[in-house]
Design a protein around this nucleic acid. Structure first.
Lengths: 229, 229
DNA sequence: TAAATAGTGTCTCTTAGACAATATGGC
DNA sequence: GCCATATTGTCTAAGAGACACTATTTA
């Protein structure tokens, strides 16, 4: 049965990667969108993405890194697979699978030309199913922020504890007890003070600068019991 | 540049789904494997899987449900997307993407013919990258069991609290304080006692039987602060 | 030295775990 | 009634939040 479908070519389909590149600026989680320069949806703002190149990529994550470098000029920020999205209708070119990733970076000083950073809570309608993809990425990031060190990847090193505290609070959308916050960061043992370095930022006591310990630079740390926000 | 690759056919590739079907029997998490009846790896034990059928599936999840029905005779147990696995070498047929799902079922009375249930902690070498896929599924399930109602999908309804307690303990691999466990289940408000129904199981007080409230039948509940095991 | 934020000490409150007491069915 | 496990009550301990206090800088 079904012999007419059994050539393996019948099972080949379009496979792309899409990147939800997130940062925090002005206290808001923002996503990077690019203006598309080809059909479909030529001219629309959309997630950076592209085809998987089977001749060079060793996996979809390679494709994601490639897209990130080419389209955002970024080398290896925090990158995590989000989920795959698939179906006959999400891409007008036909039945497709997109393996979506999300990446976190510290707010870039100068965006590259053509990059548009938009607050994730006030996005226009996006092409394909990019709206859903962004929504899932945001949910994942907010959720993980409750019980992990994920938000450090939104900071430029070195950073102060008050700065990191503000980032957690912005992500979670609520105040976090500063005493508990310090206790937790202390327990995690992931940060080390930069000797003698402080950040003065007004007419008051300057804050100690911290950096990630090397051994935690590429690893998430989990907070016992979460931040209990 | 690259104009030689720009026909969309160059970007089509093999896409499959694989299912990690898990259950708990004899206090162990076990995974269902099938003996493959074709190349590659003809005759080897492997995860049930199959090609995505672009002519009938509305998405990879449809394909997963289809595979689950055809190969395990199961209709819609708990099913969740795990992750996608891809690369040039994982499948000898060429560069491929597999969207992996995991599913939970109560221990089936009589396995279907050809099904092999093996404890996840003592698996032989598996073909493709199925070993890695199973490992990730197990990690996900154990992790989610710490702070959600996921394990109820491993129970046959109705069940008693001591039964559910034993399932959590087996999954997490450690004792759980029974008083805290009851408190948590109570707070979740997800279970309701089946009026008058008890399960007698020896020369002692029988236990109250519970069932999932309808509104929670397809939803995970999250435990505040987890089970703190 | 006043103002302002950084950072610490400590008390309180919530919640998890320990343990003891009670309940109930089979024998 | 005895045994074994179910179920509940209550005390204790650990950890989170509140709040007050000290530290350190600029103006």
């Amino acid at each position: 049965m079904n012999s007419s479908k059994n050539s393996s070519n019948d099972h080949r389909l379009i496979c792309t990667v899409d990147i939800v590149l997130l940062t925090l600026r002005e206290g808001q989680l923002q996503v990077m969108l690019l203006k598309r320069d080809r059909e479909p949806f030529d001219g629309a703002l959309a997630l950076p993405g592209g085809y998987v190149h089977t001749d060079e990529d060793q996996g979809c994550e390679d494709a994601a890194q490639r897209v990130l470098l080419q389209k955002a000029g970024l080398q290896s920020p925090y990158l995590e697979q989000l989920a795959s999205f698939s179906g006959p209708a999400r891409d007008p070119r036909g039945w497709s699978v997109s393996v979506a990733y999300f990446a976190l970076v510290a707010a870039p000083e100068h965006g590259q030309p053509g990059q548009h950073w938009l607050p994730v809570d006030r996005l226009p309608q996006l092409p394909f199913d990019h709206g859903r993809i962004v929504a899932m990425a945001v949910e994942r990031v907010r959720n993980k922020s409750q019980y992990s060190s994920l938000p450090v990847y939104l900071c430029t090193e070195p950073f102060t504890l008050p700065e990191l505290h503000a980032i957690y609070a912005a992500l979670l959308g609520e105040a976090i007890n500063p005493v508990s916050f310090r206790r937790k960061m202390d327990e995690l043992g992931m940060l080390e003070p930069v000797p003698g370095a402080k950040r003065a930022d007004g007419a008051h006591r300057p804050a100690q600068l911290y950096r990630l310990k090397d051994e935690y630079r590429r690893t998430l740390r989990l907070v016992g019991r979460g931040l209990n926000a």
